[in-house]
Design a protein around this nucleic acid. Structure first.
Length: 417
RNA sequence: CGGGGUGUGGCGCAGUUGGCUAGCGCGCGCGCUUUGGGAGCGCGAGGUCGGAGGUUCAAGUCCUCUCACCCCGACCA
């Protein structure tokens, strides 16, 4: 893509109404636009990042048998009343609206009820199970106080998977597979070293739920880490009894701030029972379906990555997430240099390298500053100077060193590994 | 929801105890010069001061109400 086709602009000054580093950087670099508190629009670069994170999550969910769907956002009140999760006294962060007729509707904040209910149309036998269904979709939560940029919004992108199993063992096996899949995702995102499987409150369904917490100063959660075992425990369930059960010793634990980047729950049969979702087993018996839910905040992850991988010059995207792989900067716009840059731009695209081609008529310093701020993994400069030196200048975002490569060497470098 | 803070061109800000046609920087447009780390000079466009009401000869400056945004706390199934 050509920089001149992005309609966004980077800005020099830090937005005054954002204190969160992730929002400051993403706004400065033109990835997002703030609409109101806790509500952001995603601009071309930001949209690509969301898509890239989504794709990683999608691949790992598919790998464990997930099937992608897209549920409606408008919610039928009747279904939620069956599980007693409609009343504002019970669930206080609903957004609700009304039909012209006066009928109340909910705006999706999670989807257990809806999907369990829909399942009645398709699942009735043990032969139909298990199923693992997920979607990547906006969620809306009427938070009393939005904060920390993308970390806690009122509208956010989330992957939510729901598992429907025939018995506890089948559920437990999938649950463990889901944990492994989550770990793979964090690895691909480049944050596995800072991310811990964390025991947290399981709510009313099971003793614990599993959270995935990434260490960060902006985190809202406090966790206690056992570094040797690579597990952690959320402060909300921290007590001697729990420590004993998990085989953790208080002396080994270190207190840290962290961001919840995933949370998976065993839900038992509550939803299925309340909504009358059963299956018939091999012997003709009516059985309850066991559910689990597996959340992953895509937009929150974008905020976390922005915060986690950044320096004083700007963002530093992990390769799999970066909106483009290469920032190609043309310095002088004379015919010869521009021609070489155009040639390289097309060549890289042919080879499948995602390039952001800065063809604007601005000074070198501005291009370098933008390249750093936007934070693509690699920067390539085509200039009189580089051509004289025998090619193009190549630099990693994380390195100070540059090297001169021929166009062929560059292509090779970017297409290997 | 409790406490604290802030709303002035697209962005960041300044506007003394109310007083003349509301300023500055960035950005934007034009011209000349410049050209490898967000250039320099000149000219120019752009705001009615979050909104409503009030006090006053006079309100961006004072009062009342209201909306929005940020931070801390509470909340987060």
């Amino acid at each position: 893509m050509r920089y001149s086709d992005l309609f966004t602009k980077t800005i020099k000054e830090i937005p005054a109404d954002e204190a969160a580093r992730n929002a400051q950087l993403l706004i400065q670099a033109g990835f997002i636009h703030k609409e109101m508190a806790g509500v952001y629009s995603y601009l071309p670069l930001g949209k690509k990042v969301l898509d890239n994170i989504s794709q990683i999550v999608r691949e790992e969910m598919n790998a464990i048998g997930g099937v992608e769907i897209e549920l409606s956002i408008l919610q039928n009140k009747d279904i939620w009343e069956k599980t007693d999760r409609w009343d504002d006294e019970k669930v206080d962060n609903w957004f609700k609206t009304k039909l012209k007729s006066g009928t109340e509707l909910g705006i999706s904040l999670t989807n257990e009820e809806q999907l369990a209910n829909a399942l009645r149309a398709f699942v009735s036998s043990y032969k139909d199970l298990p199923v693992y269904i997920y979607q990547i979709q906006k969620k809306f939560r009427n938070e009393l106080r939005a904060k920390s940029g993308l970390m806690r919004g009122r509208e956010f992108l989330m992957k939510d998977l729901y598992s429907f199993s025939r018995n506890q063992q089948e559920h437990d096996e999938f649950y463990e597979k889901a944990i492994e899949a989550y770990m793979k995702i964090y690895k691909r995102l480049g944050i596995s070293g800072a991310t811990y499987r964390t025991y947290a409150s399981g709510g009313i369904f099971s003793k614990y739920s599993d959270e995935f917490q990434t260490l960060s100063e902006v985190g809202e959660d406090t966790i206690y880490i056992d570094e040797a075992q690579r597990i952690a425990i959320n402060k909300e369930v921290f007590n001697d009894e729990v420590l004993g059960e998990l085989g953790l010793s208080e002396s080994e634990l270190v207190e840290k701030k962290a961001v919840e980047v995933g949370n998976i729950f065993s839900l038992g049969t509550k939803y299925a029972d309340a909504l009358d979702v059963f299956y018939t087993d091999e012997k003709g018996n009516r059985k309850s379906i066991i559910m689990g839910s597996y959340g992953f905040g895509i937009s929150r992850m974008m905020g976390l990555l922005a915060e986690h991988f950044a320096d004083d010059k700007g963002l530093i995207w992990p390769e799999e997430v970066s909106p483009f792989e290469v920032y190609l900067a043309l310095l002088e716009r004379d015919k010869k240099t521009a021609g070489k840059a155009e040639e390289l731009y097309h060549k890289l695209q042919e080879k499948g390298v995602a390039v952001l081609f800065d063809d604007r008529d601005v000074r070198a310093g501005e291009k370098f500053a933008d390249a750093d701020l936007i934070g693509l993994p690699f920067r390539v400069v085509v200039s009189e100077k580089s051509l004289k030196a025998g090619g193009v200048e190549f630099k990693k975002r994380t390195s100070k060193e540059t090297e001169i490569l021929t166009p062929d060497e560059l292509v090779k470098r970017l297409t290997s590994s």
